[in-house]
């Protein structure tokens, strides 16, 4: 291929790449322009630290939703990390090639299921199960239900990134450990897992970011009550569900306040993504 043609193709690809950056920039700018004025007018402290959300009376406090989002994210990790990392360890260290060929695509397939389907399954099976066996203020529409649904949803992310991290550990590490007389399990926990630590952590943080950003499935199973949760069986509202629920009917300040909710969400997701990058970069260095 001639150098001119090469350069031409690389320029086209550059243009395509700049398009996605432009999109990110425009979206970010738009959310901030729409949402930031009202945050400044109410005061950042009052907006973030008040639990009183009465948009039609002009009171906008989103603390209960920030707490709601974080509770759901933590709950999701409690469900997904043991399952996801355990699955990754099995697939990477113990399973035969044939088992991997069946299980890995199946887990990746979870990613292709639309979130509304997860929500629907949650409403039909998990909500009634939690209500009849555990009860609680949310009548089954609660943090626990959302955590289980989201925990299954983010499994592919955590499994995928953990397997990549485990398989990036050089074979000589394992061989060395086994040669010193360690068992396979000892090698896995004491050598391989430690070496893959940062990659697995990155997967976990990314999974958490996915959980905080997920909207449709959460709206369907969490009940969306604007309260500070006292137990995992309480209904809460997350930042995402607040935006999606009320956007259709909101005007004026109410609408701006929803964009401001988006600003807070944007910042949280950015922090989590930055953490993922930081953690992975340390591994390479």
């Amino acid at each position: 291929m001639s150098p001119t043609k090469d350069r031409f193709i690389s320029s086209i690809l550059f243009a395509i790449a700049s398009f996605s950056i432009t999109a990110l920039f425009v979206i970010g700018l738009f959310i901030f322009i729409e949402g930031f004025p009202i945050i400044l007018r109410i005061g950042i402290g009052k907006f973030i630290l008040s639990t009183d959300w009465s948009p039609l009376e002009g009171r906008f406090g989103i603390l209960s939703m920030i707490v709601g989002s974080l509770c759901v994210a933590v709950g999701t990790l409690i469900v997904a990390v043991p399952l996801g990392v355990g699955c990754a360890i099995y697939l990477s260290e113990f399973a035969s090639k044939r088992t991997v060929a069946i299980i890995k695509p199946a887990i990746e397939l979870l990613f292709a299921i639309p979130s509304v389907v997860y929500g629907f399954v949650g409403v039909l099976f998990i909500v009634p199960f939690v209500r009849t066996h555990l009860g609680g203020q949310g009548h089954g529409f609660c943090i626990l239900t959302a955590s289980v649904v989201l925990g299954i949803m983010v499994l592919p992310v955590i499994v995928g990134m953990s397997i990549d991290a485990l398989q990036a550990v050089p074979k000589v590490y394992r061989d060395g450990s086994l040669a010193l007389g360690a068992t396979k399990w000892q090698t896995t926990t004491m050598v391989t897992l430690r070496a893959a630590r940062s990659g697995i952590l990155a997967g976990v943080i990314l999974g958490m970011a996915n959980a905080i950003g997920e909207t449709m499935a959460v709206i369907m199973v969490i009940g969306n009550a604007v309260v500070m949760p006292n137990s995992p069986l309480d209904s809460v509202r997350t930042l995402t569900s607040n935006i999606a629920l009320e956007m259709g009917y909101a005007t004026g300040e109410h609408r701006q306040a929803l964009f401001a909710t988006g600003v807070v969400l944007f910042v949280i997701i950015m922090i989590l993504n930055a953490m993922t990058r930081y953690v992975t970069r340390k591994r390479i260095a």
Binding site: V123, L124, V127, P128, R131, G138, H139, G140, F141, I219, M220, G223, N224, A225, V226, S235, R237, A244, L245, G248
Partner: peptide, 17 residues
């Protein structure tokens, strides 16, 4: 209170609870 965003989903919650 539990909050739903359409007539249909309010009905769905009542049907299942």
């Amino acid at each position: 209170g539990l909050v739903q965003d359409s007539n249909g989903s309010v009905r769905e919650v009542v049907v299942t609870s």
